[in-house]
Amino acid sequence: MHSDGPDSSSTDPTPAEVACFESGIKFGSLYHQFAGTPVSPESAGSLARAMEESIENQPHCERVTVDVDVDALERELEEDAADYTELTGRFLDVEIVVERDGRRVTSRMAMDDGYPLMRVVDVAGRGE
Rank of each mutant, 00 (worst) to 15 (best):
Lys26Val: 04
Met118His: 07
Val121Glu: 04
Leu87Tyr: 03
Ala48Pro: 05
Val94Phe: 04
Ile96Ala: 01
Phe34Gln: 02
Phe91Ser: 08
Cys20Ile: 03
Ala16Thr: 05
Met118Gly: 01
Pro41Gln: 03
Arg63Tyr: 06
Ser43Asn: 06
Tyr84Asn: 13
Ala35Thr: 07
Asp80Val: 03
Gly28Leu: 09
Asp101Trp: 01
Arg119Glu: 12
Met1Arg: 11
Cys61Asp: 11
Ser107Gly: 01
Thr106Asp: 04
Met111Ala: 09
Asn57Lys: 14
Gly127Thr: 15
Glu86Ile: 06
Leu73Thr: 06
Asp7Pro: 05
His32Asp: 09
Phe91Asp: 06
Arg104Thr: 04
Glu95Ser: 15
Cys20Glu: 04
Arg90Ala: 08
Gly125Asn: 15
Asp7Val: 14
Arg100Ile: 05
Ala48Leu: 01
Pro59Leu: 04
Arg126Gly: 15
Val120Asp: 00
Pro41Cys: 05
Ser8Tyr: 11
Glu52Met: 04
Ser107Met: 04
Pro13Cys: 12
Arg126Thr: 15
Met1Gly: 12
Thr85Phe: 07
Arg126Asn: 15
Arg108Cys: 00
Met109Val: 03
Ser10Pro: 12
Ser46His: 05
Val98Lys: 00
Ala44Gly: 09
Phe27Met: 07
Arg108Ala: 01
Leu87Cys: 14
His60Gly: 04
Ile25Gln: 13
Cys20Trp: 10
Val98Arg: 00
Cys20Pro: 03
Glu17Phe: 02
Val121Trp: 07
Glu79Ile: 07
